[in-house]
Design a protein around this nucleic acid. Structure first.
Length: 573
DNA sequence: GCCGTTTTCGGCCCGACTGTTTTCAGTCG
């Protein structure tokens, strides 16, 4: 198993954090951070590139030194300078910098003065009063640190995107009700549709900021007002979620939205671009001296910088700025492009609604088709169907089809991929299905080679169409099973199979970087909900967001095709 | 540590807020 891009990225990222605490040059630190992000999101395997003697310095931000360090990591799995640094600076210090209010400088000061190495050390030192003596630490700072440690115990930082949306909506509604507010929205990683959100960044365009701030800090869910200013405030909600609010005049709204949407790296890239022309870009606008060149809307700012408009989902400084300069941005898939859903369950197994209800709901959403993909017999816990039960469901589908206007219910199943890679139902019945979706539900801990071989054998099956939740990850709960994703992609491309982009909030599986990898490998995806109830059919937008983060366009997604076009792509013609 | 159509050295994004300050460093986004 070669060293994964993610592993290299983690090492660089960790090294950057330790260097920063050590007081290294900030731009040197940034160079490692940039490299980490580049490699983490890079489609091709960097380890393969090293093996093939490709010139890594061709990559933006990778020079001779970093190229050498990448080779070292690929070849040894380690980075000697990091290990050397770790002898002086305990690794656990990095975690301390993730506490709000504690940055690299203060962590270093605590370590130097009191040998504080981790959360427990910090708490002890704070409670004992020893921190008081250190320059720069007053009682208020210490109180906030203790609070932050408590909060850390309660939440584990990030929340799923869907939970963030639930927290944001009532708050936005409240702020929109204030007089003089012309716009209110959530920016930040939420707007970029990342899988999880660390905090909410609200942006309000208004003429009377004081009133907006007052409404904000008096919201009933606010547990604590962390900071309060005239244009910017921060609160912590009872749920533990931190919310930042920034107010701007309407003339700056676009520039502010751009700025607060980030990512930070994207902002830096844009500001550098502005600086090259002698301009200055801030949240107040794009300026030449005192003259405002743009700022009211985002498209205006991009246009003035000579860039095509960049969708929020792409703003990670992962090649989108260069693509926008060259006019080579992809046209991203949109929710309205989707013509149907290829993964959902009914009461027959572990769904909550009947076949009729699910079909009716699909019809109401204007779909041309919906695939009913109940589990198969191996998944006993979900009451998986055997051939006979599935046959009965197929007959029920036959009776329903034709009575539902333009909607066609596709006969399908989420077939278990068994430990040896064979499928859980005999060919006789698989042949009768319109589409075969396959998935792994057990033996998550096979060694990478065996797990990969297991999937490859399933893809080899003559009737296999779509690999559901391809890596099996559950955000915040477990990583995906260990597989060689590049091999899986190559195999899927060879065999005319497709990968699912699972829309469930907790799955978002494929990951964004893997969506992009699929595009490069010329593997098409199905954006599906895996809905276990009628309401979950609406999670399709999360799958779309995920695909957009992975640079996918309409053509990359099989269920943007009409029914005839879809059938033409599947193995049964 | 990276980078270069003014540069191979000297730059590298910009501003708000807090707390502990006698004028500003640290943190955050």
């Amino acid at each position: 198993m070669p060293v994964a891009n993610h592993d290299i990225a983690e090492i660089f990222s960790h090294y950057a954090a330790l260097l920063e605490i050590d007081g290294a040059n900030a731009f040197r630190v940034r160079a490692y951070q940039n490299a980490a992000r580049l490699i983490d999101g890079y489609a091709a395997s960097v380890a393969d590139m090293v093996r093939d003697h490709e010139d890594l310095t061709e990559l933006a931000g990778i020079g001779a030194d970093l190229a050498g360090k990448i080779e070292e990591i690929v070849e040894t799995g380690r980075l000697a300078p990091l290990e050397e640094l770790e002898r002086r600076m305990p690794s656990a210090l990095v975690e301390l910098t993730t506490l709000p209010g504690l940055g690299p400088k203060r962590v270093k000061a605590l370590y130097d003065a009191l040998e504080v190495r981790g959360l427990e050390d910090l708490e002890r030192a704070a409670r004992s009063g020893r921190i008081r003596g250190i320059r720069g630490f007053g009682q208020k700072t210490i109180d906030k640190l203790l609070q932050a440690i408590d909060a850390r115990r309660d939440t584990h930082g990030r929340v799923l995107w869907l939970e963030a949306e639930r927290a944001a909506e009532p708050l936005l509604k409240r702020l929109r009700g204030v007089g003089g507010v012309s716009a209110a929205t959530v920016a930040g990683s939420f707007r970029r549709c990342k899988e999880t959100v660390g905090d909410l960044d609200l942006l309000v365009a208004c003429s009377r900021s004081a009133e907006v701030m007052e409404r904000f800090v008096t919201y009933e869910e606010v547990e604590e007002v962390v900071a309060r200013g005239t244009t910017r405030s921060t609160v912590r909600l009872r749920s533990g979620l931190q919310v930042d609010l920034r107010t701007v005049p309407a003339a700056s709204y676009g520039a502010a939205l751009l700025y607060f949407t980030g990512s930070k790296a994207h902002n830096i890239a844009l500001r550098s671009l502005a600086a090259k022309r002698g301009w200055k870009l801030s949240e107040y606008g794009l300026f030449e001296g005192r003259k405002r060149l743009a700022g009211r809307t985002e498209p205006e700012v991009y246009r003035r910088l000579g860039l095509a408009y960049i969708e929020p989902e792409l703003r990670e400084n992962a090649g989108e700025v260069e693509a926008a300069q060259a006019g080579k941005l992809p046209t991203l898939v949109e929710l309205k492009d989707l013509r149907g859903d290829l993964h959902c369950h009914t009461l027959a197994t572990d769904g909550a609604d009947t076949l009729e209800c699910m079909a009716q709901a699909a019809l109401e959403r204007g779909y041309e088709y919906v695939a009913i993909t109940d589990h198969t017999r191996h998944l006993r816990i979900a009451n998986g169907l055997d051939s006979r039960a599935l046959s009965r469901q197929m007959q029920a589908i036959d009776r329903l089809n034709g009575r539902l206007g333009k909607l066609t219910i596709l006969k399908s199943a989420e077939v278990d991929i068994l430990e040896d890679g064979s499928l859980d139902l005999p060919d006789g019945i698989l042949r009768e299905l319109d589409v075969v979706v396959g998935a792994i539900h057990d033996h998550f801990d096979l060694p990478p080679d065996r797990q990969t071989d297991r999937i490859l054998r399933a893809l080899d099956h003559r009737y296999f169409d779509v690999l559901a939740h391809p890596t099996g990850r559950l955000l915040g709960e477990r990583d995906g099973y260990a597989i060689d994703i590049a091999r899986v992609m190559r195999a899927a491309a060879d065999r005319g199979c497709f990968l699912e982009v699972n829309s469930q909030s907790k799955r978002r599986d494929l990951a964004d970087a893997y969506c992009r990898m699929a595009r490069d490998a010329r593997v098409k995806v199905a954006i599906s909900t895996d809905a276990h109830s009628v309401t979950q059919l609406d999670s399709l937008r999360l799958g779309v967001a995920q695909a957009r983060r992975g640079w996918l366009g309409r053509g990359d997604v099989i269920n943007t095709r009409g029914l005839a076009g879809l059938r033409a792509l599947l193995k049964r013609r």
